[in-house]
Design a binder for these strands. Sequence first.
DNA 1: CTAAACCCTAGACCATACTCTAGGGCAACT
DNA 2: AGTTGCCCTAGAGTATGGTCTAGGGTTTAG
Lengths: 148, 148
Amino acid sequence: MTYTIKEVAEKTGLSIYTLRFYDKQGLLPFVSRNSSGYRAFTTGDLQLLKTICCLKNTDMKISDIRQYITYVMQGPSSIPERRTLLQAHQQAILAKQAAIEKNLQEIEFKLNIYTSPEAETLVNQELAVAQAEKIANDLSNPFQVKNA
Amino acid sequence: MTYTIKEVAEKTGLSIYTLRFYDKQGLLPFVSRNSSGYRAFTTGDLQLLKTICCLKNTDMKISDIRQYITYVMQGPSSIPERRTLLQAHQQAILAKQAAIEKNLQEIEFKLNIYTSPEAETLVNQELAVAQAEKIANDLSNPFQVKNA
DNA sequence: CTAAACCCTAGACCATACTCTAGGGCAACT
DNA sequence: AGTTGCCCTAGAGTATGGTCTAGGGTTTAG
């Protein structure tokens, strides 16, 4: 049993366009064609495609994914290179995770202000400080003036 | 005291180009100009810029950041809208965090294989299965054949 | 045997987010 | 006054990752 591009699109959530685009980019050299020239995805192909999605979802660039797939096509001799590539990517993901966590906390801090009962007071204070700073530096006030 | 665009670039890690681009995109309506038409960043402006970076670093689109900044410029009356916008973004970040965590685990699983002493055996097994599947479906073998 | 629903390629087009160039003004030092 | 090093805008160009169209072949059910 093999799968058509449409079936694979449904299974993966990628569009047919994207699948063909990935093939054009050299990400799917492992997908064979049937006698009509149609792509025939095996379950093994789906497994590899899942790995590609995994890398894509963690923001690996297509050129790097292509490099990884190229290694896979070369067989076991490329295991050291695959390991190096994935380890570098792992580090990139960990760094990104840390950054996201930090930014998320900032956003939660902002949200706490906006959700608190003193939200208006706090926001007004910030605004007053910002406006005073503009005036102190001889700058125009870019904030919208309250129309009582 | 105010900061020039160059100083702000150094402080934030954004390029001067990017800062001007953000201004062009309506992300910096709060930055006033001095008598020569130069941007003059106050410390309050830096604070807001930091928030912009926070949103950008968590993949908020520029159009959405612009919306948020527009709310900020409107003063306290827009607090409910700011809250709604940030809460939606918070949910998006949480979803992304979960997805990254899941994909990271997949990658770590792969790495464990590549790092284990049986790496070559395991990879060869996978490859054999994939090739057998191609043959079973009358497809060409796209993998590189070992030259003994 | 034909219509509907697939499949294919090549290549144009689009969105997003920058990045850079050209042309010109301002500020400080020499 | 000239040179250096900033600043400005407008707009062109680039990189990335799709998305779609045109033109054409295949497969399947009626």
